[in-house]
């Protein structure tokens, strides 16, 4: 009997297969990528318009807000690219394709995450990355080796937190198959929330996003670290060094929720 393949090489293989499938309709792929880029630009415009009217909002200028926006959008769109397909879990349950995945010698989460992989989502990551570079280049706070090294750690943690949010949100569909949109309130809703400096929403929301659903570690705490500013809502400054720990905790929680959901799954029964 052949040994089951290791999970890591399978993900890129499935991803490459779906990329080639999407490339069969080049015009649609171009349109889809353009649409994603346009969405990022539209949100960017909205922030510039809001800050254009306000000047300074909750102590943040438009340039500082752009840093927050870029961190949030880069993290959420990268997570969407890598893990976004899990939101179709309910569809896999309804059509029975989850059963097929369960008998294959590849972890079902890897199969679902790679299913219908959408390279067009790069169309959203690229503008976000460009704004991030622009915002980082314009920072007042001086660069030191420690700060420069901590930046990729912050970005990776942010992506991990978003991936975990995506998986946890999708697991809801193990219990309510057609409630796909409910997860959107924390996935896309989380993205919309973290695009603005959290202080805009007031202390209550900042605390909820720090201690209940830790979205503050996607863009808010990293931005405070990069801007080298005290937290205007009065939370301790050491929180900005915790994103890696938060990311690890969220991933562990996501794994637990996924396993619980999978164990609860009883197929469609027909």
């Amino acid at each position: 009997m052949a040994r089951p393949p290791a999970p890591v090489p399978v993900y890129p293989l499935l991803v490459w297969t779906w990329c080639r499938a999407v490339a069969q309709y080049p015009l649609s792929l171009a349109f889809l990528a353009l649409a994603q880029a346009f969405a990022a630009l539209a949100e960017l415009t909205a922030i510039v318009v809001v800050f254009g009217h306000a000047g300074v909002l909750a102590g943040f200028t438009v340039h500082e807000a752009l840093l927050v926006y870029a961190l949030a959008t880069a993290a959420f769109s990268t997570a969407d690219l890598l893990m976004g397909s899990v939101e179709r879990l309910g569809e896999h349950i309804r059509t029975g394709s989850l059963d097929t995945m369960l008998v294959r010698p590849v972890p079902p989460l890897v199969q679902i995450a790679a299913d219908r992989f959408s390279p067009q989502r790069l169309g959203r990551i690229l503008p976000a990355a460009a704004v991030l570079v622009h915002a980082l280049a314009g920072l007042d706070a001086p660069w030191t080796a420690g700060r420069a090294l901590f930046l990729p750690v912050l970005l990776a943690s942010a992506v991990a937190v978003c991936c975990a949010v995506w998986v946890i949100g999708a697991c809801l569909q193990f219990f309510a198959t057609d409630a796909r949109e409910a997860a959107n309130s924390i996935t896309y809703g989380g993205q919309a929330l973290t695009e603005y400096p959290l202080a805009v929403y007031g202390r209550g929301v900042v605390r909820a996003a720090t201690f209940a659903v830790p979205l503050a570690f996607v863009s808010w705490q990293p931005a405070l670290f990069l801007l080298d500013r005290p937290d205007p809502t009065g939370l301790p400054d050491w929180l900005r060094f915790t994103p890696p720990a938060v990311a690890a905790g969220m991933c562990a929680l996501a794994a637990l929720v996924w396993r619980t959901g999978l164990r609860h799954y009883r197929s469609t029964g027909s």
């Binding site: 309510a176 057609d178 409630a179 796909r180 949109e181 997860a183 309130s185 805009v200």
Partner: peptide, 22 residues
């Protein structure tokens, strides 16, 4: 699709509150 409708209401409300707060 009752659950989908409830999910839609939840999502629209959450987005409404976020947009309204900004």
């Amino acid at each position: 699709y009752r659950a989908a409708t409830a999910a839609g209401i939840l999502t629209n409300t959450v987005f409404g509150i976020i947009n309204a707060a900004v």
